[in-house]
Simulated assay, not measured.
Amino acid sequence: MNRIHLIPYRIEEIITVAPQIPEGVRMIKAPEVWGKAEGGQGNVIAILDTGCQSNHPDLEDRIVAGRNFTPDYSNDEANFEDNNGHGTHVAGTAAASLRDGGVAGVAPEAQLLILKVLDAKGSGDYAGIIEAIHYAIDWTGPRGEKTTVISMSLGGPDDVPELHEAIKRAVTAGIPVVCAAGNEGDSSPDTDELGYPGAYREVIQVGAVDFNRKIASFSNTNDEIDLVAPGVNIHSTYLDGQYASLSGTSMATPHVSGALALIKNIAEKEFARNLTEAELYAQLVRRTVPLGYPKTAEGNGLVELDALEKIEQFFGLDNRGGV
């Protein structure tokens, strides 16, 4: 069986200073709903990646726990430090703290469960990833916290039944699973470009757009694309307390993972109850706008977190009528 890997990505630039609210976070209109969503507070986003720099100034207050599922650091399960850079970048986009001198993530008050499933070279085995998914489902934090979103910017060619079953278990438990579409796109929306776990129907598969709202040339197209998010020249946290601009559907994915933490707070407050995974997905889709591309490229469209509120204000509607 093939190993599973990081979705290939580009490092555009490594910098010491980045914009406090990156353009990608602004593009999906996260700041517009931070107040209503309490910044995602109370949610835990499980990041399955290369680990995370645990003492990065923008992330140290966000990390609630972590575990290593790779042979790195002599198989030390307690050491989930990032020795690649990708995981730190993804974690920052999802939930970096809003603070002076740093960059904010989409849900800057959410917490992060860091599950290192890929080694320094960005490679991992399916068994470790499957184990990490089950771990995220069963995990309980020091104050009773539970995982509310699973984010995976990784992929491989194999449809592994045990991986599929783990994902279906997460969804049944009410946990949305957000996955990158992949970066093997050939700009032809008529050709299916599939990687797993992104191609599973149960996951929320994310393609990438640039800041001009154009589908990124590298973004995979297939029948299972659910939506798109910013994935080109994305500023976020990086190793050694620095910042970097990276491109790939890997970068689009945590925008959606963070968005779900915000949506969960907004919607569950409005409906005065916990929502199922299917209901959370419906609320996410209601906060997308079409871009005019085929469904195989953009799915339901670009995430814009204030889209539903704008419609309701325009028509004088109340969102409580149904999920």
Rank of each mutant, 00 (worst) to 15 (best):
E38S: 14
G40I: 08
G40K: 11
G40S: 07
G42M: 06
G42D: 12
G42F: 12
N43A: 03
N43Q: 14
V44R: 09
V44M: 03
V44Q: 06
L48E: 04
D49A: 12
T50H: 12
G51R: 07
C52M: 07
Q53E: 15
Q53N: 11
N55C: 07
D58E: 13
L59N: 08
L59Y: 12
D61W: 01
R62P: 01
R62T: 04
R62F: 02
R62A: 14
V64I: 15
A65S: 10
A65Y: 11
G66E: 07
N68D: 08
F69R: 00
F69M: 02
T70P: 01
T70V: 05
D72W: 04
Y73L: 05
Y73F: 15
S74E: 14
D76P: 02
E77R: 15
E77D: 11
A78G: 14
A78T: 15
N79P: 02
F80H: 11
F80T: 06
E81Q: 11
E81R: 09
E81L: 10
E81P: 00
D82P: 00
N83P: 00
N83M: 13
N84W: 06
G85M: 09
H86K: 06
H86W: 07
T88V: 05
T88I: 05
V90E: 04
G92T: 14
T93L: 15
T93P: 01
A95P: 02
A95N: 09
A95T: 11
A96C: 05
A96K: 07
S97V: 12
L98K: 09
L98D: 13
R99Q: 15
D100L: 09
G101W: 13
G102D: 08
V103T: 15
V103S: 15
A104M: 07
G105T: 10
V106Y: 05
A107Q: 03
A107S: 12
P108R: 07
P108A: 08
P108H: 14
Q111S: 13
Q111W: 05
Q111Y: 09
L113R: 12
L113G: 10
L113F: 06
I114G: 04
I114N: 02
L115N: 07
K116C: 00
V117H: 06
V117K: 06
V117I: 11
V117D: 05
D119F: 04
D119Y: 05
A120D: 12
A120W: 04
K121T: 10
K121D: 14
K121P: 00
K121V: 03
G122H: 03
G122M: 02
G122V: 01
G122F: 03
S123W: 10
S123P: 02
G124L: 05
G124A: 08
G124N: 09
G124C: 07
D125F: 03
A127M: 06
A127R: 15
I129K: 09
I129V: 15
I129P: 03
I130P: 09
I130A: 10
I130L: 13
E131P: 01
E131W: 12
I133F: 02
H134W: 15
Y135S: 01
Y135R: 11
I137V: 13
